[in-house]
Design a protein around this nucleic acid. Structure first.
Lengths: 116, 116
DNA sequence: CTGGAATGATACGGCTCCGAAACGATTTTC
DNA sequence: GAAAATCGTTTCGGAGCCGTATCATTCCAG
């Protein structure tokens, strides 16, 4: 059962959701960072730097830097692949799972408030 | 009738939507810029720099710079308020309306594809 | 008319991010 | 084993955005 959403509702949902992010956080994650984060949390592992870069159509340093930033925030984690030590596997963290959960709950709440 | 959305659906919708933005555009608007844009297009005018800054809980230069950027993109427009020439009124443009419409359609399309 | 208040823009130093290129480490190929 | 390929990181110059403080313009009160 697909979720039925009219364009005006979609735009209001997008606005209300982003509005909360902007209002609450001093510093926001970028759209790229959010997409990387959600990819890791929603799609089946393993996630490598190269794989994420190819999937998102960005260069590898973009992924490396995003991992630096979100690693510092402790919402993502690097791990060397023991099987092939050239690879870096990107993993979830407890803090990151809570962060993502908060995003989902916020979106659900804003969807509930949408007019007819 | 509120839109019913489960957290897992919300997260997937958020991911798929952002994913398209990241993949398609070389340079993305920031979350702040998108919020400013949608505020102008969804809420009743007039919109001033000061008003937007207060509403979004950011400083005035943030709005000024966002208007510089999005003005260059021609998706928003500055106009001096003739009644009180200290004020700058932020207005919509044809190009901006198309841009916002595209955002809404993209979100609707991604919502339709959501599983059960 | 003059001093102060309000508004948006600008200057500044700092931080993050960008893509391209070069680099070190590791694995694979021959 | 030596050479080539792969992978992630780092470096580089450049660009955008950040908040604070300041500025020019405009309005308004007295």
């Amino acid at each position: 059962m697909p979720v039925d959403l009219r364009p005006s509702q979609a735009l209001k949902l997008l606005h209300d959701f982003n509005y909360e992010l902007v209002r609450d956080d001093d510093r926001d994650l970028s759209v790229r960072q959010i997409t990387i984060l959600l990819t890791v949390y929603l799609e089946p592992p393993p996630h490598t730097v190269r794989g994420l870069a190819a999937k998102l159509n960005v260069t590898k340093p973009v992924i490396t830097r995003a991992l630096d930033t979100m690693g510092r925030m402790e919402i993502l984690q690097r791990r060397r692949d023991p099987a092939d030590r050239r690879n870096v596997v990107v993993q979830r963290t407890v803090k990151g799972a809570l962060y993502v959960e908060r995003l989902g709950d916020l979106m659900v709440a804003k969807a509930k408030e949408l007019p007819l």
